[in-house]
């Protein structure tokens, strides 16, 4: 029999609880009206949530190195596109 690639059931449930808590946090943060900072707060919380999904639900934490390199290249590409576009919009 092959080695099990998946985590214990309980661990997925824990991640789910974490995601629910972060959802509550982002809804609360939005209702507090931080002004300019509320967008940043929402993006940071969304990034933490997606990290949880990628690392545990999508098993990235336990994948081989090649997957991590590929993900890093993809995210970096997206960041380059975004930063250059924002630079263009803001300093045109």
């Amino acid at each position: 029999m092959e080695k099990q690639a998946t985590l214990p059931y309980g661990k997925y449930v824990m991640v789910w609880f974490g995601l629910l808590a972060l959802t509550a946090l982002t809804v609360t943060a939005a209702s507090l009206h931080f002004g300019k900072w509320s967008v940043l707060a929402a993006i940071i919380i969304a990034t933490v949530k997606s990290s949880l999904v990628v690392l545990y639900f999508m098993n990235m934490k336990y994948e081989e190195k090649i997957f991590k390199i590929m993900l890093a290249v993809a995210i970096l590409t997206l960041m380059v596109i975004m930063v250059l576009t924002f630079a263009d919009i803001l300093f045109r």
């Binding site: 995601l19 629910l20 959802t23 639900f57």
Partner: peptide, 23 residues
Amino acid sequence: TINTLILLTSSLTMALAIAALDR
């Protein structure tokens, strides 16, 4: 918010389905 909770939960059931098949 409700739709967020629904999708997050569906992600959990999907991950658990894979873990179950793995066992």
